[in-house]
Design a binder for these strands. Structure first.
Lengths: 207, 207
DNA sequence: TAAACTACCATACATTTGTATGGTAAACTT
DNA sequence: AAGTTTACCATACAAATGTATGGTAGTTTA
């Protein structure tokens, strides 16, 4: 009953999923046609009918953008991890994605937010561990006590943020590490963003 | 320049945000009109124009559902937590939501998945702690080694799942707790779902 | 009291969107 | 050789959608 998809049908399904995950909203026929260079919505329409016939999607007729994806094993999609960030001592941050995590569909990122993998154990008392993925939002103002990602001389750290009268203190949750005090010694200091959440995938240890 | 919203405008904006977060896609004018009981899309249209004038949204003209929400501080929305679940000894699971977590917009749940707050420390070697939110997907088949939520006589536990020849073993990650062996002694045993991820909000400790 | 704002309604219209129908060409069955 | 599937195109049409314009009534502001 559930036949295999053709190459093109598969690429269209991938596009549907990618759009739904990245933009949160399925595309219209016209948008799909534009993306694949079709001059005609009818072409897309026929592909979608074929995909629906094979049971991978379900369409709510007449409504716009009402494409429901019924393949449940596509819950996990690859997301770029932009670098590693030190919870202990500063670590290099890489310009390109160093890895991808399989983030469940739950993880629709706030716009402009990105992921960093944590290395080191200086935040272990905040229950953030080496290997965890932190979700970083660069568009929020840091408040005292929040966990932030900061750059010190081309290295990045994850620490708790405290603004004092004349300086900024970045403290670890682990007493083994001393607070970093920010003053004029760090000309390249910059707050990259605020950690809005921690995500840890459970699929790793599965046998 | 950026005036205050009126009561009605604020309710419409809230509806826009709620729809975008829960359904992932902004509503159409007709859908908004229906929700508020307006007989006319033009009424909605004028409200949206007013809201846009005050800078809270941005519209991509002519396109459907092209309402962009420009207020970024609404990233966190309440999500129901369906109950508590024991990582150590079994805990009662409640029929109704016991609490809400402020889950960032990142957390658009896979359909039918739900949240449970973990109590107890039996999974601490898997780095799941008391207070963490686990994302549970009830529609996946458990595989050996995965962490599952199971019900034993009206109490729920979070354990690692192992299927043996004639029985099912639920083991803790903490050596202090002994594995639970499932056989005929547990007539009401049921796998509730699979833990697909752990989420921990960082906003709690902020000052 | 006049002007401005808010909150609605009705009607009209151009696009967008989904859908239906028919056609062409290539590849692959049978 | 005839049929089927796949991958496109064109045209046509109804419904959905966003938008423009004008109107009424109540409230607030100047």
């Amino acid at each position: 009953m559930k036949k295999e998809l053709t190459q093109i049908q598969k690429r269209i399904l991938d596009f549907l999923i990618e759009q739904k995950v990245s933009k949160g909203i399925p595309p219209t026929l016209a948008e799909i046609a534009l993306h694949f260079g079709y001059k005609n919505r009818a072409t897309v329409q026929q592909h979608l009918q074929a995909i629906e016939k094979k049971g991978f999607i379900k369409k709510n007729p007449k409504l716009s953008r009402a494409i429901e994806i019924t393949v449940e094993d596509k819950f996990f999609i690859p997301r770029p991890v932009l670098g590693e960030v030190a919870a202990g001592n500063p670590l290099t941050i890489y310009p390109d994605a160093i890895d991808t995590v399989e983030l469940p569909t739950i993880a629709r990122m706030p716009k402009d937010s990105f992921l960093l993998r944590v290395k080191g154990d200086s935040l272990k008392d905040a229950y953030i561990f080496s290997g965890d993925i932190v979700i970083v939002n660069p568009n929020l103002e840091p408040k005292n006590g929040q966990i932030v990602v900061a750059i010190l001389d081309d290295a990045a750290v994850v620490k708790r943020f405290y603004k004092k009268k004349n300086e900024i203190e970045l403290v670890s949750e682990n007493p083994d590490y001393k607070p970093i005090v920010i003053d004029k010694k760090y000309p390249s200091f910059r707050i990259v963003g605020i950690v809005v959440g921690v995500y840890r995938s459970m699929s790793k240890k599965a046998v």
